[in-house]
């Protein structure tokens, strides 16, 4: 067992864990942060994406011990003071989700993308989220959601058809 100390969604936590425990397992099983989900076992799908010290990571690809001393933000900590993050709001506004399973990771990745590139082109958005798989939306409205969140115009007939 190894002792780790970290801050998750603004809360200071400390636990004794098995060294092999993945960050996503720690979040889900120890902290009950079930908003973050596991969609694969090869770090391809990105459903488990969270922010580690402000950068997006696939939390299935990080050991919990590697997060020792760090700050983690999950989908559950993104809204502040009851206000949705603009990216969360944009996913809802543009129908950027259907079943919602990829959504936590997709939103966390999109937030990170916009931090690096506040006005991405469509191609930059597509490349920026290509590590996150979605099976429902065909990505069309996810791209629109990221454009919308960035304050760029979204062609109306492409959202409402």
């Amino acid at each position: 067992m190894t002792r780790i100390n970290l801050v998750v969604d603004g809360m200071r936590v400390a636990d004794d864990i098995e060294p092999r425990m993945l960050l996503v397992q720690y979040l889900r099983e120890k902290l009950g942060k079930t908003g973050t989900v596991v969609g694969c076992d090869t770090s391809n799908c990105g459903a488990c994406t969270v922010h580690l010290d402000g950068r997006s990571v696939k939390s299935c690809n990080v050991l919990a011990v590697q997060a020792d001393g760090s700050e983690v933000t999950t989908i559950e900590g993104l809204a502040q003071n009851g206000q949705l993050h603009p990216v969360q709001e944009a996913f809802r506004e543009c129908h950027g989700l259907q079943c919602g399973f990829c959504t936590p990771g997709m939103i966390m990745q999109s937030v990170d993308l916009l931090k690096d590139n506040p006005k991405p082109t469509e191609e930059e958005i597509r490349l920026g989220i290509e590590g996150n798989l979605c099976r429902c939306t065909g990505y069309h409205n996810i791209v629109r959601a990221v454009q919308h969140a960035s304050g760029q115009p979204v062609a109306p007939n492409e959202v409402t058809a």
Binding site: T34, I75, A79, L84, F91, E93, H95, L97, G100, I107
Partner: peptide, 21 residues
């Protein structure tokens, strides 16, 4: 009408009820 979905509030905030939870 282009109603935004009722389902989304929980799905975009991680307040979800997947079986594995």
């Amino acid at each position: 009408r282009d109603r935004r979905r009722k389902e989304d509030a929980r799905l975009i905030t991680g307040r979800t009820r997947w079986t594995d939870n």
